[in-house]
Each structure stands twice: as C-alpha cells, then as structure tokens.
Amino acid sequence: MIGIVSYGTYIPKYRIKVEEIAKIWGEDAESIKRGLNVYEKSVPDIDEDTATISVEAAREALKRCDICKDDIGAVFVGSESHPYAVKPTATIVGDALNLNGFFYAADLEFACKAGTAGIQNCIALVKSGMIRYGLAIGSDTSQGAPGDPLEYSASAGGSAFIIGENNVIAEVKDTLSFTTDTPDFWRREGQRYPSHGGRFTGEPAYFRHVLTAAKTIMQRNCLKADDFTYAVFHMPNGKFPVRVANQLGFKKEQIELGLVVRYIGNTYSASSLIGFSAVLDYAKPEDRILLTSFGSGAGSDAFIFEVTDEIHSIERNPKVWDKIKNCVYIDYGIYAKFRGKIKMR
C-alpha cells in the first residue's frame, strides 16, 4: 500500500486584512471580499521564506511519525517563490532536517501545483522501489504587485508529506494529471512580480483543468461525488473551488473543512495541500478524499485517497485550523517592509 505516512504544515502567524490593503489603493473592501470570498491572508515574517517554511512543515511531518530519517530517499520542494532563482531549496531542507546526504533532491515549479507534482514523483519513486520514503513539500511566499488584485490573496504557507509504503495513514488509490499550454499566469525571468490574464485565469485555465482532471479520475474509478467524504480543490480565491465543487456535485459539508483560503489567502503551491491537511486533521478510517490541485500554465493533478486505521497512530495536533486562528494582524506599512516592497536604496 502506497500513500501518506505523515504530514506537517506551516502557516506564518501574520495576517493582513482585505480592508487594510483596499484602504491603501482606494478600493472598496466589501466588494473585494464579496468578489473573492477572501477576508485576510497570511504574511511571512521578514526572516521567513519558502525555505524556512518548507523546513518547518517538514520538521512537523517528521516529528509526527516514527521513521528513520536516513530512509528518506527523495526531497522535492514545489514552489513558485524559491529563494534562489538558481540553487535548490531542497538541499536547504535536507540539511536542515540533518538527512544523511543520500537523497534525491529537486525543486519543482508549476505555479500552484508544484507541491502535488512532488507527491506524484514520490509515489512513483516509492512504487518503483527506488526509495523507501519520499518527502514532498508545497511551499510559497507568493507576491502580488502592489495594487494588483492578486495582492489581496497571494500569501504564504507550506505543507509537507512523507510518502511511503509502511504505516500509511491515507492510501493513494489513484492519481492523474491533465496538462495543456495555457498562459493564464506567469512571471518572466528577472521580473519581480507575476503577470496574469485577469478573467482569462478562470474559464479556460482553472475551471477547464480542475474539472477535467477531477471528472476523469472520478469516472475511471467509477466514483460519484457522494462516494467521497471530503473534496479539496486548489483555492486561488474563495469562489472558484466552491463553484467547481458545485459543478461536480459536491455538497457544502464535503468542502467546508478544507476551505482555508478565506482566512489565509492563496498559499499557491501549498494551497490545496494545506486544505487537504486540514481535512486529514479530522479524517477517520475509510474516509475517501478527492484532492485536485491547479497550476497556471496550466495543469491539474487529481488524487483519490482512502484514510486507513493508521490515521489514529500519528499525532495530528496542532491542527491546521488552530494555526489559522493563531494569528497577529499587521498594517500595510509593516506588510510592505516584511515583503520587501520598500525600495531601500
């Protein structure tokens, strides 16, 4: 049986409210909140980045289970905000976990779905017998240009998964990816902030890929929405995942637990994974979970997981929702300083 052996998450404690950002740009906070269904977002501290967030999430995952660190044969860090353009984040994570050096390491980038891409890679490596355990991390400190609508949602967080064959808490029953060349969101080399196609990011990008991936994996496993306890979709805002869930026939109760975006924003590579972790926090044996990520550019990875009895054997506290609630609000000035938006010289 291959699946998740352990998981950990990290959400920076700072939050900025939509009102605070809207005030700066002279926009109407209420209509933005209605439009996006996002109320506030997480902000990393001045000394936090994708590497530190990845390490914290990975350390939690390791602490929660009882595996020998030396058996970790692969580390993938998926992010669109790697601290270095050239030089891996995965090596930082490996050394910060004090791994023994004999592990395969790679940084992945596929907008918001690089984290799930890492999970798929780990599944394949474990399945092939090349490694015993793989560590897949989705982590980001994403940025929106000042004044861009993205600024209301682009946030920071990380989620780490240990994939293996023993003591699996959630078995991977199936996974697939749907990918096309759809330039809905991008950042050119050397550019500080990303660009996007506005409303073009919706129908031809997010909806087409998420729906296709989710529908196909459900069909080929002969499963309907009712057969799932929970469903989690990538959350660029609070509206898209809800609309997709409705179209696929999921009910509010199935998606509510994983809908973390309203309070922490879009954590990009960690978005669907933090939602999935929030679900795992409360999952019971035999629960079936649909996870579908989305990465601009564009593609979706879909997974079907079944929770096992082992779920009770690992520590699941503190829970994602506890971390979401444990927060400190900051104003736009501090936010601008933390995020390097102030030109120093």
Binding site: D45, D47, E48, D49, A51, T52, E56, P83, A96
Partner: peptide
C-alpha cells in the same frame, strides 16, 4: 527552536539561515 533567515550577503548574495 525554529528555522529562520539570519541575513544575506546582499541582494545577489548567499542567504544565511540558522536557528532562532
């Protein structure tokens, strides 16, 4: 203990991580 950034060797330099 947590893993954090302590500094960097300028904007184009190496990043110094450590324990806080």
């Amino acid at each position: 203990p947590v893993f954090r950034k302590y500094g960097e060797d300028g904007e184009d330099g190496v990043i110094y991580y450590g324990t806080k």
